[in-house]
Design a protein around this nucleic acid. Sequence first.
RNA 1: GGCCCCUUCGUCUAGUGGUCCAGGAUAUUGGGUUCUCAUCCCAAAGAUCGCGGGUUCGAAUCCCGCAGGGGUCACCA
Length: 478
Amino acid sequence: MNSTKPARTRFAPSPTGFLHVGGVRTALFAWLLARQTGGQFILRIEDTDKVREVTGSAQHITDSLSWLGLTWDEGVDIGGPHAPYTQSQRLDTYKVWAHKLVEQGRAYADPYTPEEVQAFRDQATAEKRPFLFRNHRPSNPPAWDGTQPLRFKSEPKAYTWHDAVLGDLSAGAEAIDDFIIIKSDGYPTYNFAHIIDDLAMECTHVIRSQEFLASTPKYLNLYEALDITHPILATVPMVLGPDGKKKLSKRDGAKDILDYAREGYLPEALVNFMASLGWNDGTEQEIFSTQELIQKFSLDRVQRNGATFDERRLMWMNGAHIRALPLDTLYAKVADFWPAEAGTYDDTYKKQVLALVQERLKYFAELPQLSLFFFTDLPISPSLWHDNKQLQKLTADELRALLEQSRTALAASDFTPPNLTDTLNTLLEQTGQKPGTLFSLIRIATTQAPASPGLADTLAILGKDVSLRRIDAMLGHV
RNA sequence: GGCCCCUUCGUCUAGUGGUCCAGGAUAUUGGGUUCUCAUCCCAAAGAUCGCGGGUUCGAAUCCCGCAGGGGUCACCA
């Protein structure tokens, strides 16, 4: 369908914390494109800010991507032809290019102290002008000895360029300024390092979030100075927080992607959901397998406006994916989510329970509350029949009589589902009760739960011994 | 403030001049499926297509202006 050249795309997070839906969605789009075109997906760690770096977060990032199934062909952990893929290990490369710019007169040492630069900035703010460092370029910059920041010497001009998502874009010369490419600690800035690495790693596409759009003209200026052809640029819209305005952030309660793993979301459901945040295939299909997404994804159908993250929609989608799973597959996936009480029960029994609970599960962490009464006798809770609209019409004596009659009838059943259905129907006739009364009573007696799957199915799984025992137990409380 | 991006039901979205007094999904409400919960099915409600001009026989769709929201203007990415 989309037969294009193999794309080499990358995801290049900085290890400053966990990954949330916003960031991962950008990675997903890049990954889908690489997979669709038979190209490569590269994972590069941009750890050039040693102050903000959080120990362990690089590992956390790789764990998150792995869980989602966003596999990388080159990158940290596995290496590749352009290793290393961690920027702090590539300092020599950046220095070579930095010196090249210095020699060409396109970079200079910044002689100001941070305080002095801040003073320029404050002055511009006070005068309601945009701050441009190039208005303060030193006339005789000192030779760069590596202890001062190194700045790119820009050549301000207007640009027009094409973005694979946003279309034709343009910006005036005001958007171009001198920016730091090597910090005084010797590390490069993102603005410089990503351009060098994308070139070295032969990336064909730069897929990134909208917050980088404003600096694109600066990058264009740098690409020119470096005399390199820039990759295809694609700007994906931001994922918005619940307020629908600002971008999703940890402050808004954006969750660690691995929290979804812990709560029992399916990675393919999360992938489907993230893709639907800003992309669709133009049909009315909502549920996509990851394979379908790989096949159908295209950058030109990516939305231009931001999408609000709505967790309720994710829950629906996860439930839909759970329902579509074959029972055995689902059974393997929920292994860690059973209540402790299920421990001694065998696979056959648990699988029967799961078959009934499957269509009720929105995420696996709900499994215990939905299935507990299949494994243990819940405490008798009289409020269940006291508050029941049908049952509260009956006296305690009537309740007891009904329960005893049901017990006798059930004792004669072999507890196969068809036989149970017959037994229950016969009981309905004999007692002259409505299903709303009789079935509620038996259901409450045998589960002591506010909700359960269908009565005959539930009884069949519980078995005769447990069912009768629980009816007896309730008889002692009516 | 400068520059830039965005603007269709609460939410995700379809829609590229007529088949749209705007379709689907979700969420909400009501009904049905021998009881509850869920699934499934049916139905209701929900968008003057940000606003104002224009072009056109005809505009959500094209043009201009405005407004609102967002992003950015770091020795962060």
